[in-house]
Each structure stands twice: as structure tokens, then as C-alpha cells.
């Protein structure tokens, strides 16, 4: 079982969390402008790397907040947790809580 470092609650067991998939996927502001292939890529395609993976977790049985985790998908070792920027801080991003703008929002967990 993973021990995940919630940025607000500290290290907790994996069973307290729910997984949210790959981080950094932002909903396109104007879906109508996309081709079917681009929309399909946004909806379904994932990088699914063997190695370092940035992913979303929600502390459902704790503070119920979303945050990011950088984890190795082979060793399962977690490098760090990071917080996400508020939804309206980046005008390029719609309602998605994940902005991926590393400089301003990430912090070592």
C-alpha cells in the first residue's frame, strides 16, 4: 500500500485517498474549435509512462482536497506531493483545478 503525503494532512494510507488519473490535463476552453481527433486525445489518450508520473489524488477520507503527486510507476516510489493552483488563476484554464504551472504553485510535500 502506498503512503501518500497529503499537503494539508501529512502522510496517510492509500486507502484514505481516491485516484484522479494523470495530472495536467486541462479541459479545452473552446471544444468546438477542436477536431474530433484532438477532442478524442483530450478525452481518452493518456501518456501512461513507465517511470515518472504526475497524477491527481483526492484525500476523500480526510480533508477532501485535490492535490498532485509525482510517483514512479515502476518502483511506486513517491518523489513528492504538490498543491494545485486555484481554478481562476490562469486565464488559459477553465474550471479545471490543475494548472500545471509549476513555478508558482508547486511545493514539496
Amino acid at each position: 500500500m502506498l503512503q501518500i503525503d497529503c499537503p494539508w494532512c501529512g502522510p496517510r494510507a492509500e486507502t484514505e485517498f481516491s485516484y484522479g488519473g494523470e495530472a495536467g490535463i486541462t479541459r479545452p476552453r473552446d471544444p468546438d474549435a477542436l477536431s474530433d481527433a484532438e477532442w478524442a486525445d483530450y478525452l481518452f489518450c493518456r501518456s501512461n509512462p513507465r517511470g515518472n508520473h504526475r497524477e491527481l489524488w483526492n484525500h476523500v477520507h480526510g480533508c477532501r482536497r485535490w492535490f498532485g503527486v509525482e510517483r514512479d510507476t515502476v518502483t511506486y516510489r513517491i518523489a513528492r506531493s504538490f498543491t494545485l493552483s486555484p481554478p481562476d488563476s490562469d486565464p488559459a484554464v477553465g474550471a479545471n483545478p490543475e494548472s500545471g504551472s509549476a513555478e508558482t504553485t508547486e511545493q514539496d510535500g
Binding site: 500500500m1 502506498l2 492509500e14 486507502t15 481516491s18 485516484y19 494523470e22 501512461n48 513507465r50 508520473h53 497524477e55 510517483r71 510507476t73 515502476v74 518502483t75 511506486y76
Partner: peptide
């Protein structure tokens, strides 16, 4: 397991 993994092992729970 809910999360992605290539490790050929999973969580105990």
C-alpha cells in the same frame, strides 16, 4: 489497483 503501475505488484488492501 486504482493508480497506474508497471511494477507487477499491487497494494495489500
Amino acid at each position: 489497483d486504482s493508480c497506474n503501475g508497471y511494477g507487477q505488484r499491487g497494494s495489500f488492501h
